[in-house]
Structures are given as structure tokens and as C-alpha cells.
């Protein structure tokens, strides 16, 4: 049961309906940014106001919610959003990727492959992939409408010219269904391939910029690159110090002021599961 005094999942029913309409339109036009009337939420911009509204619009009483922040379930942002929905929607929450039906994420895609029964909700700070290149919003919309994306390649060209390789390590631009240029939110480029033909529905909410966009299940998502400088997912060349994974995305953790550091999985659930498995085996 959710806390009395709140409507189910905090937002009123007509607001949720408005957001659902935007979501349906976004799903119908993969990668296209749909404007919506984002509401004031009881948390500051930059903390996931877009993601939380999308989650509120799609969540039902039987859903199981997982929230991650940079892959971790136990950081402030993740804990407070999980608690927010536990209180206002009375839904079950989990830290296990496999058990969740809705996963709201800030800046990561879980390592465990998602299924058709799951929805991944991204928190998006800047939805417009061309924003750094073309400051006029009206002009970026014209470029989208005409699929005029040479500018984005100019940015990658400049990267290679300056650094010898494409130095964009996060928010790496993608083309959805060979049509719309899309910012995958600041997930590491390492996660980009996971978006391609993902069985789960991917929804993106930007609260401050008031935009929603989506990638339906089993949709082509291609990272931009050059023929002679193909896209490479970047990963620290180490094994996780806790679970030994050589495949997961790693965080670098400074352990002392002597230069000591360790690399651990950014996805805490994935890491815990592997540790439990290894512990059970011995």
C-alpha cells in the first residue's frame, strides 16, 4: 500500500496520461525527441526529474523497481528514488537486475542482458546530441527533420584530429533505426552496443529540457564512426578486484594517498552475484 495523501506514484492521473501519450509517440518514432510538459518534482534538476516522471507514468502496483546510479544500487540518488516509489506507489523494490520489471538508471546499462519483460528508464541531462555543436534549438530540430547529421561527424573528425582517436568516452552519439541521431544519455561508450537490438523497451526522460525519447525493443542502434576509425567500446584494461570479471565496465577507486588504486565493477549487482557464485563454488 502506498502512503495516503499521495496519488499512486506521486503524479496525478492526467499528468501521467500526458506523459504516456508522449511515450507512445516516442516509441512510434524511435530516437525522436518528443516535448512534454515536465512537472516540478520533489528533487532538483539533474537528479533524475525526467527519469522519475517516466517511471511514474509506466509503473503499476505489481511492478518491481530497481534504481541504479552509475551502476550502483547503494548511492544517494538510487536509494532516494527507490524509496520515493516505495512510499508513493507502494511497489516492491529490488537490487537484483534479474528480478526487476522496471530499472531506472543514471549513466549505466546493467551488465546482465535485459529481457522483453523489462523496461529501462534513463535519466537524461541533455537530450540534444547536437547541442554543443549547434546552439540554436530551432536549427537542431530542422537538422533532425532533414536527417542532416554531417555536423556530428565533424565533431568526431575533430576528435581524431586532436587525439588520434575518437575521444568521446560517454554520451557517444548513435543513429537509431538508420534515421534519428540520438544522445544515449551519459552512459559510457562501452554500453552503447547493449542498446542495439535490446529485447527491453528503453525510455529516456529529460526533466529540465522537457523531452522524452525511446528505443523500442529489437531496434537497430548504431554508434557513429568512420570506416577507418571504427567505434570501439572503451574499458579499463584490468580485472575487477572483487569478482575478477574481465568483461564488465570498471570504476577506478583511489584507496590511499600513496597512489594506490583498485578497479571494481561499476555494476554492483553483477559484481555481488559473481562473488556469491564464486563463494558458493569454493
Amino acid at each position: 500500500m502506498h502512503e495516503p495523501g499521495y496519488n499512486f506514484a506521486y503524479l496525478d492521473e492526467s499528468t501521467k496520461r500526458m506523459i504516456r501519450r508522449a511515450i507512445l509517440k516516442a516509441v512510434a518514432i524511435p530516437g525522436h525527441q518528443v516535448p512534454f510538459g515536465a512537472r516540478e518534482m520533489p528533487l532538483p534538476y539533474g537528479w533524475g526529474t525526467g527519469g522519475i516522471q517516466v517511471t511514474a507514468a509506466v509503473i503499476g502496483p505489481t511492478d518491481v523497481l530497481k534504481v541504479i546510479d552509475q551502476g550502483a544500487d547503494d548511492t544517494t540518488n538510487a536509494v532516494s528514488i527507490r524509496r520515493f516509489f516505495a512510499r508513493t506507489a507502494g511497489v516492491a523494490t529490488t537490487e537484483r537486475t534479474a528480478d526487476a520489471t522496471i530499472i531506472q538508471t543514471r549513466h549505466r546499462i546493467p551488465e546482465r542482458p535485459l529481457t522483453e519483460d523489462q523496461i529501462l528508464v534513463y535519466q537524461v541531462p541533455i537530450p540534444e546530441p547536437l547541442s554543443r555543436l549547434e546552439p540554436r534549438i530551432a536549427e537542431t530540430r530542422r537538422l533532425h527533420s532533414m536527417a542532416d547529421y554531417g555536423l556530428m561527424h565533424v565533431k568526431l573528425y575533430e576528435d581524431i584530429t586532436k587525439h588520434g582517436h575518437i575521444a568521446t568516452a560517454y554520451a557517444y552519439p548513435v543513429i537509431v533505426q538508420s534515421r534519428y541521431l540520438m544522445c544515449p544519455s551519459p552512459i559510457p561508450a562501452f554500453d552503447n552496443p547493449k542498446m542495439h537490438m535490446m529485447p527491453a523497451l528503453q525510455l529516456f526522460g529529460a526533466g529540465r529540457e522537457k523531452r522524452i525519447y525511446a528505443v523500442p525493443p529489437w531496434t537497430e542502434v548504431r554508434s557513429l564512426d568512420f570506416d577507418d576509425h571504427p567505434f570501439r567500446p572503451i574499458r579499463a584494461p584490468h580485472a575487477c578486484a572483487l569478482c575478477g570479471s574481465t568483461e564488465s565496465y570498471l570504476d577506478e577507486v583511489i584507496t590511499d594517498d600513496q597512489g594506490g588504486r583498485m578497479y571494481v565493477c561499476s555494476d554492483t549487482d553483477y559484481c555481488n552475484e559473481r562473488q556469491a557464485l564464486a563463494g558458493g563454488a569454493t
Partner: peptide
Amino acid sequence: GERLMATGARHY
């Protein structure tokens, strides 16, 4: 290069 890339050139 911008015009080349705008018309589909993809070889750096």
C-alpha cells in the same frame, strides 16, 4: 570535410 561528411563520406 563538413560538406563531404554531410553527403556521406565516412573514411577519415
